[in-house]
Design a protein around this nucleic acid. Structure first.
Lengths: 170, 170
DNA sequence: CCACCGAATGTTATAATATAACATTCGGTT
DNA sequence: AACCGAATGTTATATTATAACATTCGGTGG
């Protein structure tokens, strides 16, 4: 029932990782978590999650909308934003604040507050749990006598792959 | 020449710090830095910086626009966004990515990449240089073989002052 | 002096992102 | 069958941001 739809993703490292596995794991975990939590991963929500997972790039809401429309004629902005709200609440995706965009979360079951390494060249986002950073951060926040609700740690730059490509090719 | 305009800011800790000093220091430093760098802190830019410094809260672009209009009749969105672009380039303000808003930077002369503690209750933003965090972050980023261009580290929650108020008052 | 240049600003229009508000559907209960 | 709440449908609009071209203005060189 997890749509076959292998398809024509042209993400940059087709050769380097089994993206179908990424997707099926993400969807499988999401389904499990929702059952456990007693919340509904409806067809719309599942579809949006699947669209987000088509790549490891951050995706814009209206880009998702454009991609959803052919599949669901009734899709409107609210359709997307509601699905995104749900997926974020459930920790299944990250909102990338510095891009107003969204990306799948690999570790939705464990934790959701991670470092995001955002490549300005290929747009891919790498999550890192970075325990040392989080530890130092907790210390700092405690010193400031601040009560945390949420964290956004977003690093922009160039990923290893792109750095290599540009130094090699130029 | 640094407008006297003491005025009716109703920021939350009038009694606790000399805000006029904050403002005059910020404007003074900005003026110096711009001279040194050979860039122009024009009247518009200075005015916008001053408006941002009216409080320690993050301010929205269109809110600034509304406040600028009475002072400069020609003000339009582009007026504000251009001034903001300049101030950000010069490190004189921070863009708060998670709020699409802006706040003065206290340490424009030294460094610009800081931790922002954003109070969801009073909207005030505290900058912290957090050297241990930054150190751990550099390590982590190096391990990921990632080349940094910029960092946004934004923590949302409740500041000490607001936490005290709510526990005391309720 | 004046022709020109670049930086800043003025001006109009529109793109891109996001939410509000109310109507409808639909499965599950009473 | 009547009702309920969660999800979705639908229309409208608010909010944030940029594009594109015109104008101003201080300085520089002819």
């Amino acid at each position: 029932m997890n749509t076959p739809a292998e398809a024509n993703h042209n993400h940059s490292h087709t050769s380097e990782h089994d993206h179908n596995k990424c997707v099926s794991e993400a969807l499988g975990t999401a389904a499990q978590l929702c059952v456990v939590r007693g919340v509904q991963l409806t067809p719309i929500r599942q579809q949006v999650l699947e669209l987000i997972w088509e790549s490891h790039k951050a995706v814009k809401a209206y880009e998702l909308l454009d991609r959803l429309k052919p599949l669901m004629d009734a899709a409107k902005p609210a359709t997307i934003y509601r699905a995104l709200d749900f997926l974020i609440e459930q920790g299944l995706i990250h909102r990338v604040e510095s891009l107003n965009a969204f990306v799948g979360c690999n570790s939705s079951a464990h934790q959701h507050e991670q470092l995001l390494l955002i490549c300005n060249n290929c747009q891919e986002v790498e999550e890192r749990s970075a325990p040392e950073v989080m530890q130092a951060l907790s210390q700092e926040i405690k010193q400031a006598d601040f009560t945390v609700h949420s964290k956004a740690i977003e690093i922009h730059g160039v990923c290893a792959k792109c750095a290599e490509m540009t130094t090699t090719q130029s």
